[in-house]
Design a protein around this nucleic acid. Structure first.
Lengths: 232, 232
DNA sequence: CGCGAAGTTGAACATAGTCAATTTCCGTGG
DNA sequence: CCACGGAAATTGACTATGTTCAACTTCGCG
């Protein structure tokens, strides 16, 4: 799967600089060079892989955001996870024939493709890389546990409040955080409808809990939003 | 083999006979003996580990069922996963200080505890075992994806129908499947209330879609239930 | 039997969904 | 630079799905 950049040149993948493999020692860093991976750019809304398609590579997101989603028999979509820079996705390729969800870019993205076949090139370091993958996978599982709790046991306001708090987790009280998701995408992530999300935003803007400018948001009253996230 | 014995006495763990490690070769099977794990019995409703508690072991369920659950700040519980015989749980111990959910038996259970510290005893085979853990973990992640779709994008009837179909997946048209979950537990698994679950069961019994005897169920009209699971 | 827990059922209610009408936003072309 | 067009978002009115509350029944077990 070798997509090309607009200029047609693929660039070396900065895989060893990424969070995923940041903790690895020198030996493994060197070994990763053997993967000879390349990074490439994708435009907004492009598909990295589609659900049901043969799974042959695991990916590292270098820059941007990716949404992983699944669709119901009736055509209703659910966003499974939002992948952030430095994270791994496409684990399916390590155990299954096909991907069990689709991966689509949100905005411009740069990612690094690691064909599973290339893992053999790692030789003795393969185990170390697999260990890193295992660790990441377990963390995703923990994250999934949390999301299951959100979807199964929380109301609309609690879900959206929790989401905003997590999304803006790194923001200081005065920094705006780009909201790369549309209302539809937020709805698909939280198991709600566009209208419900829109109404909650409107309410909270009136109540001076959050502010929204172009595509960015700012939490004005974090305490209040935390309370809203905690149910009642 | 797994001998039965009263509470308190531990017996050799039949870990190498289990589904988790069934695919492993002879070398790894021998290596697993080095873990020197023991299996033990738990009564219905006993806790294996509690959310927030130090995580120091990964478990293999030898016999019975375990529910993994999480609780909301407001005290509302969500069942994350039902562990079946032969499956692994407690992955958290491999990456985190604490478990992020609780594990409780459903009925009598026999399980095998693998303290993560003991993995060092595996020596060169550690990587192979970790690979097996990684594979299982990825499969759990796929399962979690499916559950997220259920909770986020399906209605009550679809969720319950899907659950019953999966639960009775191995049943032939005439075999009864023990339903080890109470109405409350089904509700907590599907993000519904006891009453909603009860009403759906009542409806489907009237419509001759399912039958329920003591603690067992039988799907009478699988086609109909499949249709119900598919939304509309 | 008789008790308590689990499950069922009904009626009222509330949360979120649906449908529809606007409005806002944003990119494109005149 | 403005006007236009289409997509996204907002808002309102209505509806429906599922929850809540409460009464009642059934089940399992001493």
């Amino acid at each position: 799967m070798s997509q090309r950049e607009p200029n047609g040149i693929e660039s070396r993948c900065p895989i060893h600089e990424l969070g995923v493999f940041a903790a690895s020692g020198d030996a493994i860093t060197v070994a990763l060079h053997n993967l000879n991976t390349t990074s490439f750019h994708l435009s907004p809304g492009q598909m990295v892989y589609q659900s049901g398609t043969p799974a042959m590579a695991i990916y590292v997101l270098v820059h941007g955001y990716i949404k992983l989603s699944k669709t119901t028999g009736a055509g209703k979509a659910q966003i499974i996870r939002i992948v952030k820079a430095g994270e791994l996705f496409g684990f399916d390729s390590l155990v299954a024939e096909h991907y069990n969800h689709s991966a689509i870019t949100l905005g411009n993205a740069r990612l690094c493709c690691i064909p599973v076949a290339n893992l053999n090139a790692l030789g003795e370091h393969r185990a170390e890389v697999e260990r890193l993958v295992m660790v990441r996978c377990i963390k995703e599982l923990q994250h999934a546990d949390e999301r299951l709790l959100e979807l199964g046991a929380k109301r609309s306001a609690e879900r959206l409040a929790s989401f905003l708090l997590e999304w803006c987790a790194e923001a200081t009280p005065e920094t705006w955080t780009p909201l790369v998701l549309s209302r539809l995408e937020i709805a698909q992530l939280l198991g709600l409808t566009i209208e419900t999300v829109s109404r909650l935003f409107a309410q909270w803007k009136r109540d001076k809990v959050v502010r929204e400018h172009h595509q960015a948001i700012l939490i004005e009253d974090k305490a209040c939003l935390s309370a809203l996230a905690q149910a009642q």
